[in-house]
Design a protein around this nucleic acid. Structure first.
Lengths: 253, 253
DNA sequence: TGGTTCTGTCCATAATATGGACGAGAACGC
DNA sequence: GCGTTCTCGTCCATATTATGGACAGAACCA
């Protein structure tokens, strides 16, 4: 089904857009888009500037970086506002946040990326707030990404990891490391990162599957490492697994 | 500046997307996309199906219609949430809504369309709720569109109206009628439609300009016609004009 | 100065997107 | 049943379109 052809340019433009999306408000310099997409510079340059003319991309005056433009949220308004998943996960996130007290994230898979779609701040005075709603990362560099990859067929996971290879460098990881973490997550039943993306933090993620068995999202707890010793890790995992199953029920029915 | 070339396919794909956006959740049949874009059917078909593979477009199982897909709001998350305009307009909308009591809309221009970005329901028991946030129409068919067109240089307005010609049919209007309404709005200082898009309703719109003098948005009151006689029309217009100037100050500074 | 980065542009070329033509399926009338 | 009129989907020869190697400028650093 996949290889429908006759639209190379459109696919490339979308690839560029997804990279720009990862740069959020600040955007991304042209050279980085070139590096991560593997396209040539003239091609990326042309695509980006056409998208600017169309209002889909903006360029920051000061920095020269390219970012997702105004018209993307405008197009997004065509869809009904809160997604099924967000609605279904809402009570679970509230409950788990109250019980655990550390920051909770809800992350979905979109293509080869993870995308944070919800965040709940807990009551404990030290909170890990590095990830914001809208944050986008290559699948594999966060515990949420590892969890999602672990929940899909090994072959699919390997393909995605391979596709993200170029982008791993900037997160100081590589294909072998990520594949190891995925295997570990499969054995444990959840994703874990002793060294979070921020120094001194630790993250635990459970996956959430759609009725057809494919991972749709991950629920993550991030905290300073000292707060997540082996004992507490088990407690947190139990809560996350319980709520993940509840969310699966909610999106299934 | 405009005619940067080497990306026909990308521009076409975006044109298709904008038509699909006008279809909101329900989407649009292929034939209508063909008609309104002026592209050939094979081309539209190919574009739409590539966009489906990429997750940018979805197809409704039952109806076969095409609609904006999941990934568009996901890309939109890359931008900071509430726009400057929405923030700036918020107090004005609240004030005007309280004073007037009928439904208020905030509408922006996006390309050749109007897009409803905010709506406030008033206290009066009969409210005109035909337009929802996200609703998208060709510039010219609503009072908001007429107001925005009236506030821009005549030449630009004419170009946009001409570009929308094909789409006017489904709204039972035409280029000549719209141009007439624009002239009337210029004279009055605000946009007005005795016959709203819904039978028996009437709408009044004032334009909101950016510091550089170009219209950025319109503020609209819609009500059943009997509630907007000449006397009350003047009252409403005064409030709308006052708040429009306040919003202009807020986005200017 | 030369050595890095970065961004932008040209244009001959090949690969890509195009659209006319054909076909299938569904809904309607008779 | 059979024609008519819609819709959507696919093929493939064609030329239009997107491509990317090569060149160039700008900014920064040593």
């Amino acid at each position: 089904m996949e290889p429908r052809q006759g639209a190379q340019a459109i696919r490339r433009a979308l690839a560029v857009l997804r990279i720009l999306a990862a740069g959020r408000e600040d955007g991304v310099p042209l050279a980085e888009v070139v590096r991560t997409t593997g396209l040539t510079r003239p091609t990326v340059h042309r695509i980006v500037h056409v998208l600017i003319e169309e209002g889909i991309v903006e360029r920051h005056e000061r920095t020269g970086r390219y970012a997702i433009g105004n018209q993307v949220p405008e197009l997004a308004l065509a869809r009904p506002r809160p997604s099924r998943l967000l609605v279904a996960a809402n009570p679970s996130l509230r409950r788990a946040s109250a019980e655990i007290g550390d920051t909770l994230f809800l992350t979905v898979r979109t293509g080869n990326d993870t995308l944070c779609v919800d965040r709940r701040i807990g009551v404990y005075p030290i909170q890990v707030l590095s990830i914001e709603v809208g944050a986008r990362r290559p699948l594999g560099v966060s515990s949420a990404g590892v969890a999602i990859l672990a929940a899909m067929p090994a072959q699919d996971a390997r393909k995605i990891v391979a596709a993200n290879e170029k982008r791993f460098e900037s997160y100081r990881t590589d294909v072998a490391t990520v594949m190891g973490e995925i295997t570990a997550a499969r054995r444990l039943g959840y994703g874990m990162r002793e060294i979070g993306l921020v120094q001194g933090t630790k993250s635990i993620s459970t996956w959430i599957k759609t009725p057809d068995g494919r991972p749709a999202a991950a629920m993550t707890v991030s905290a300073v490492r000292t707060r997540l010793g082996p004992r507490r890790e088990q407690e947190v995992v139990e809560i996350l697994l319980r709520e993940a199953r509840i969310i699966e029920q909610a999106i299934g029915g």
